[in-house]
Structures are given as C-alpha cells and as structure tokens.
Design a binder for these strands. Structure first.
Lengths: 246, 246
DNA sequence: ATCATCATTATTGACAGACCAAATTGGTCG
DNA sequence: CGACCAATTTGGTCTGTCAATAATGATGAT
C-alpha cells in the first residue's frame, strides 16, 4: 500500500509545492527535463504527473512554452466546506422544511404512494437499506417541490452528511436508537403532505430535524462526558504512578 | 485549433466508446498494446490518455491486471444542474430568508456597518461594481448566519445565477431598471437586521426576491411577446413575398 | 479427485534516448 | 523602429527495453 504509482507521488509533491506557494499562481514551473532530474524520475513520469494535474485544473500546459500554475487555484468544484453536524442539520431543517411546504401544494399521488412504501421499508430492513430509504424519502420530497435548485441544495447537504467524517460520525451516533421517533416523524410529514397542507408540512419537517439536533447535542454531551472521565482516569493513574514512585 | 494533444484526442474517443456502451461499466478494456495499435499511436500516448481519464474518475487502472470502466459512471460532483431563473430565485427567496432570520439574532455591529457601506456602494457605482456589492451584501448576510452549510448553499445558488447562461440572461434583463426598488428593499432588510428582528428580516428578504420574481415574469412575458411579434412579422413578410410572386 | 503451491504468462509501470513540432528569443537587416 | 529569420528552448511523440505485479495454468501432494 506504501507504493502508489510513481507519477501519482510526483503529482502530489508538485501540488504541495504549489499550495505552499513555491510556485505561485500564474508562474511557470521548471521544464520537464529539469523536473525529471530534480525528482530523479524519467521525463515520461513528469509528463504523466503534469497530465494528471492538468486534468484536475491545477496547471495549464502550453506547447513549446511551458506549464503554468492556474490562476484561480482554489477552483475545486464540488468541494464540501468544513462544517459541523449541527450546522448541516440546522440547514436541513430550514431548507427541507421549505421544500416540503412547496411540495405539499403540488406533490402527485404517485409520489405519495412511494413515500408510503419508503416508510415501510425503513421500518423492517437492515440498517443499510433503511438508511438508503431515509435518503430516498427526503430526496423524493425535495424533487416533489418542483424546484431543481432546492433539490441541488438538499443533495449537497446530504453529501455533507455522508462524506464529512465528523458529520457522518455524529449522525451515525444518533441514527440507530431513535428509530421509533424517526418513524413517527416521517409519518407526520407524510400526513401533512397528503393533506396538501404546506404549513403543516413545514412544521413537521422542522420538528423532525429539531429532535435530531437535540439528540445530537445529547450524544455529543455524553461523548464529551466520556472524554472527561477518560482524562480524569488517566490523570488519576498518572498521579498514582507518581505517588507510587515517590 | 483542430489539433489538440494526441493523448487528449485518444482520451476523448475512449470516453465516447464508454458512453456509447461499447465498454459497459465494470468491463475491462483492451490492453495498452492493442489500443496503441488500434488508435495507431504509441503505448505512451495510450497511457497518458488513460491517466487523464482516471484523473476524472472514468476508469480505474489496476497494475498487472488491466484498466476497468468505473461502475458509477456519471460521478461528476460540483456540476450545476440545469434549472430556470425562476427556480433559482424561488430557492434564494426561501433559503436566504432563513439565513437572514438566523443572522438577525447574532450579526455583529461590525458586519452591520459593512452592509451599510455596501448599500452605499451599490447606489453610486458603475454596473459591475454594483453587482459585486450586491453579491457581497447577500454573502455577508449568509456568513452572518453563522451556519457554514447555509453559506455553501447560498454560494451555490449565486454560482447558478452567474454561470448558467439562461439564468444569467434573465437576471441581467431585470437587474438594471429597478435599481430604486432594489435599494429600498436592501435598506428594509438591513433595518430588520439592525433591529435584531428575525421575522422581519425573513419577511424583508422574501419580499426582495418576490418582487424580483415578479419582474422576471414580466420580462419573460415581454420577451415572449416580442418573439411572437417577430414571428408574426416574418410570416407576414413571407406571405407578402408569396403574394408578390403570385 | 481435490486442493495448495509454484512456474508461466499477460499486463501495467518505468526508463532511456532519440527525433519532431511549436513557441520563444534574439539578432539582423531594411 | 519594425519586420523577418534562425537558433534555442520546450513540450509532444515514438521505439525499444526491462522491471513489477496480477492472473493463469501446470504440477504435485494428500
């Protein structure tokens, strides 16, 4: 596992040099031949590294001239910001609530039926399937809002929930135990949608996430408590060690 | 312009073959040597093309085994969806309103001062500077919400407003004339923030975008009208031509 | 007959050296 | 001063070779 492809290692080093400001944006970096000598690899490898970097937009290669560092360096489309689970959930509570309100007015009977099925799936399935159904439940409501921009925002929030380690950890910590409460809330949301009641849908969705935020705060509190206890235990042992030595 | 880098052309062709289903996801595509012969290029070039494709996630290269088409082909994060200006504005009205409500509770005096300055800048500047100030005004409020996820969502919406041609066109069509109304609305939003009144801030922000949606509908209506008139004129001329010939 | 082990082979990974094509540079000449 | 040209630099590509690794098939023990 230690050895990746050579060009990959070289590309990573060059990228680091760019990040560190050794090669500021707009500047021209050394020729392939010189880089090959510096990294002690062949010219082909340097070229492969440069191609990989170019494919991601870090540099621009100009034939006969040289390779240049891209001006807008931090252009990293699709990059997720570093946010806390609390922020993600607060944003979801606000945004998905509005999406639900929009959806209440125009959702089709067909989609209502699918939501019904998804709730059932969440009830009696293994954890993985249940999670997928949960996602689909919220995604379906988002799509039913008829607003692609809202759908995009909500999908982005879900990506944060799944791809940011800290956020994922927080969610996983609370998502198991309160399956009962969750099912009840989902049912409430669906009922509001069936009643074509935007305000009720908004409220139900907010309540859903509000409870989630509460659980997260509890969980993180308990975790913090455990950490404190662990530290206390460690310092106690350290103290005992010292006492023993003395 | 016809001749790009060789590897780029090859990569494009391979990507097309994948899209066309000649190499379905999961399958292994021909070895470097065979591809080199087929495309009549060297192995190095094939390798470069494969590296470029791998960098974008289209294929996976396994040493000693072969290169395989990625399973989840359309993985293209950060791509903006195709949405209408109406959808973007509706989403902004809902999401930015909530951000403003959040901000009202915790915004600093310093940021309030900056918002003041930005309104002034919008008042007496050329169009470009004014647009930048507008963007910064909304971004500042978003940041003042203290929720990074909300900031991200709002930034994403602004990208749609600027990078999707149709959306940009719609915004540009209305953003000029109603500078007066816009200034008034911005002032109302700022007042609500200064009063630390979440409900007022939410309401003011919604009103702002609601008026914008109205203007857009008017503009698009007028545009549609012009298009109809143009078509009518053309068919009239065509008719006259025919009549003249007859 | 079955399964584990090992040699074979196919395939990617990396290299050196050469040559080509395009862009840059610097100088010359009008 | 400016236009033109040649030398140099730099990326672009090819051929050929060897190394490293994964898949495959043969072999032998149980």
């Amino acid at each position: 596992m230690a050895e990746q492809r050579l060009y990959h290692r070289v590309a990573e080093e060059i990228r680091q040099l760019i990040d560190e400001g050794v090669f500021p944006p707009g500047t021209r970096l050394p020729g392939e031949r010189e880089l090959a000598e510096r990294f002690d690899v062949s010219r082909v490898t340097i070229r492969e590294a440069e191609i990989a970097l170019q494919a991601v937009g870090h540099i621009e290669i100009k034939t006969g001239s040289g390779v240049y560092v891209s001006e807008d360096q931090p252009l990293q489309p699709g990059q997720l910001p570093e946010v806390s689970a609390f922020e993600v959930t607060e944003a979801r509570s606000l945004i998905e609530a509005e999406a639900a309100a929009l959806a209440a007015k125009i959702i089709s009977d067909e989609n209502l039926k699918k939501l019904d099925d998804l709730i059932e799936t969440m009830g009696n399935s293994d954890e993985e399937t249940s999670l997928a159904a949960d996602r689909e439940f919220h995604a379906m409501i988002a799509r039913s809002s008829g607003n692609g921009a809202m759908v995009h925002a909500i999908e982005s929030l879900w990506r944060m929930r799944e791809e940011l380690p800290e956020v994922k950890h927080s969610y996983d910590a609370v998502c198991e135990e309160d399956a009962a409460a969750r099912a009840k809330e989902h049912q409430a949301i669906l009922s509001a949608l069936k009643a074509r009641n935007p305000d009720a849908a908004r409220h139900a969705m907010r309540e859903h996430f509000l409870r989630l935020i509460g659980s997260m705060l509890d969980a993180s509190e308990q975790e913090a408590l455990r950490a404190v206890q662990k530290r206390a235990l460690e310092s106690r042992e350290r103290f005992l060690d010292v006492a023993r030595m003395g």
